[in-house]
Nucleic acid binder design. Structure first.
Lengths: 184, 184
DNA sequence: GAACGATACGGAGCGCTGTTCCGCTTTGTC
DNA sequence: GACAAAGCGGAACAGCGCTCCGTATCGTTC
């Protein structure tokens, strides 16, 4: 039903994804749209047509990695010593993802206008995964059972914001504490 | 040695503080400078002369409350049942402060350009207070001793970012978990 | 109270953002 | 080759932070 896309359109979409990935590494996910357009050698209108909001672009760029993170959940659960160990490993993976993309964690905040799509996507895709890890650990009596995946994920996301290069603030330490605090 | 300030200058400074307080409540600490200038009925140049950076203005507006928070530290330590209880109460106070000022927690992030002064001020004034609470609790064997005040304060600040009005994310719960995770 | 530096004020202006909109180009089809 | 339809580019507009300098006000001195 949807008419086939034109060849130049799909080409541009690929070019844009590559350019955005490049620019995100160089200047963070908040990089000016113009910079991405320039890198891709296209006009700004082209970006907005393919990705109406910046979040759509970010989602598209990182879809693979989010998917990997989502798939890792069940797999960890079945290979780890305990549900809590699986949870810990998964959180570590999640943190890796957030921390290596400059500014991504910051963009995850719900109040950040223009990024709602990103927020929703993360939640929809990873929320259930996180939820099942939490449920398994709670079931096993390793952690309390009154924590929601949404809450934990946002907390972790928030903790990952703005780490500084001198090691005065290291999100992983605090997240470790947070997980610790979950134990019974 | 510094020549006495002109009367209109001190008047304007007061007007500005009042206007800024008003606007911060209405539109958050990120409110456009123009808005504050308009509220105060002065030009933008006047704001920048009195408060070179936005952080200077924020600091001036909230100085009293930060001071109260700083003074509460030792006092809580002497009146609470245990150092850990004091720490918990103090953190609660700190969180109150961050949460009631729309956008303040967000502004505390170190990578936020233009807010360094705020970052430094909070750290200088509250860091030592937090440090002594942590030290006392560690001394009493209630919590581990490898956590730095800076780290804890930034973690708390980060967790306070962007709470949403529907109660899906409540920073206090996570901070409670974090403190829990500190216990031995 | 008049005159005159010093001090402070106001806001136009610049540069940098995001976002829209429409004339032009390219593509696929007949 | 012709002709919609789909897609493209970037000028243009709006909102922001911040600077800069002509103008107004203040405090002092005579």
């Amino acid at each position: 039903m949807p008419p086939r896309k034109r060849a130049d359109a799909v080409r541009n979409e690929q070019t844009l994804l590559a350019a955005a990935a490049e620019v995100f590494v160089r200047s963070g996910v908040d990089a000016p749209i113009r910079e991405i357009a320039a890198e891709a050698g296209v006009g700004m209108g082209t970006i907005y047509r393919h990705f109406p909001t910046r979040a759509d672009l970010v989602v598209a760029v990182y879809r693979h990695q989010v998917e990997a993170c989502a798939l890792a959940g069940p797999s960890l659960l079945s290979t780890s010593d305990s549900p809590f160990a699986a949870l810990r490993a998964w959180v570590d993976m999640f943190v890796d993802f957030l921390v290596t993309k400059h500014g991504l964690a910051h963009a995850l905040q719900s109040d950040n206008s223009g990024f709602e799509a990103l927020h929703v996507y993360f939640l929809d895709r990873l929320g259930p995964v996180c939820g099942s890890l939490l449920a398994a650990a709670a079931e096993a009596g390793e952690i309390r059972d009154d924590i929601q995946p949404y809450e934990l994920m946002r907390g972790i996301g928030n903790l990952c914001i703005g780490r500084d290069d001198n090691s005065r603030y290291n999100p992983r330490r605090l997240i470790e504490l947070l997980l610790n605090g979950l134990r019974r």
